[in-house]
């Protein structure tokens, strides 16, 4: 694709593990992100999201494959790429004892703006993002949310074509998260392509035009949130149990039932994919009831991205792999 702003072919990254074994963090990644998209990499920690992003924004050199970012070759023209991209890392990277404004000034000048230009652009962003109240305080006094908005401002100081956001809302309160989302949407409307990583399903769902679900260094599925959810036909019935033994016993009772399209044992709960939940539910409850393993709790839901992830990888995104 020539109109994609990110294009990768068989991009991979191998690290030496603690015991000198080879860890394949990213394997044969083929990806195309179109201009103007908000594209999300969704997956648990350790799935290779951040490694992928660090490669794409010239921080980490790939072990193999190739990539074109904003029309330039990643291996040969990283310097050109850097002019056109913005990056907001997980740590932000603000100078703690300098003010937010000073941080922006430095960033602007590193993008070859004159002092006057830098001042004008910093003021403009500070006003637009409503940061005036604390722009001249040291950044070490900022709240997580305030700091993150400043990080964002510093990432777009040079109006990049492509903005990378690494876990933009991790550790933020819901209000700050909403603000980050709002700003990402504004940038999107202005034509900026946004590439983000997240392990929040809500974030991918609410923000992204397309999502790639990554697991163990590979893309498991790619598409719009709606498309991905469509892969799971019908409804999901979740049965909760007191303990794993009872759940397992009920799981065996449900073996071979034709109404169940697919089922997963999640420890103390069972997840059942069915065509029509309203019709299947009474039948399923009857079976586990008669088998002396009635469920402690029951829920009937429409599929979420979590269910897509579960279906693709056999593991839940919320459970073990969620937070670090």
């Amino acid at each position: 694709m020539t109109d994609s702003i990110i294009h990768t072919e068989k991009l991979c990254k191998r690290f030496a593990g603690p015991k000198k074994e080879v860890v394949e963090a990213v394997r044969d990644l083929d990806l195309d992100v179109a201009k103007g998209e908000i594209f999300g990499l969704l997956g648990p920690n350790g799935a290779g999201k951040t490694t992928t992003m660090r490669m794409l924004c010239t921080l980490l050199s790939p072990s193999g494959g190739k990539a074109t970012i904003t029309g330039f070759d990643l291996a040969r023209q990283p310097h050109e790429i850097r002019r056109h991209i913005g990056y907001v890392g997980q740590k932000g990277g603000m100078e703690h004892v300098a003010s937010g404004r000073e941080n922006l000034m430095l960033q602007a000048q590193l993008y070859r703006m004159s002092k006057d230009e830098a001042r004008r652009r910093s003021n403009e962003l500070i006003e637009r993002l409503k940061l005036t109240a604390f722009a001249d305080r040291k950044t070490e006094t900022y709240s997580g949310g305030q700091r993150r908005i400043f990080d964002l401002a510093s990432g777009v100081i040079h109006s990049p074509q492509l903005l990378f956001l690494d876990e933009p809302s991790t550790g933020l309160d819901p209000q700050s998260r909403a603000r980050v989302w709002e700003e990402a949407k504004v940038l999107h409307e202005q034509g900026t392509t946004v590439f983000l990583t997240t392990h929040y399903l809500e974030e991918a769902d609410a923000l992204c035009d397309r999502v790639a679900i990554v697991d163990q260094g590979r893309i498991a599925a790619i598409g719009s949130p709606a498309e991905l959810k469509k892969q799971i036909a019908g409804d999901i019935i979740t049965l909760g149990y007191e303990d794993e033994t009872r759940a397992k016993a009920a799981f065996q009772l449900l073996e071979g039932q034709r109404v169940i399209l697919e089922k997963h044992d999640l420890g103390t709960s069972l997840q059942l994919y069915v065509d029509r939940g309203d019709e299947a539910l009474p039948e399923i409850l009857r079976i586990v009831g008669q088998g002396n393993y009635p469920a402690k709790s029951v829920s009937l839901t429409r599929p979420s991205l979590d269910d897509v992830f579960l279906k693709l990888t056999g593991r839940s995104l919320r459970g073990d792999g969620g937070q670090s």
Partner: peptide, 14 residues
Amino acid sequence: LDSGFIERLRVTPI
């Protein structure tokens, strides 16, 4: 290096 400051600078054209 720990605060991410260097990383932030590394993505700029410096």
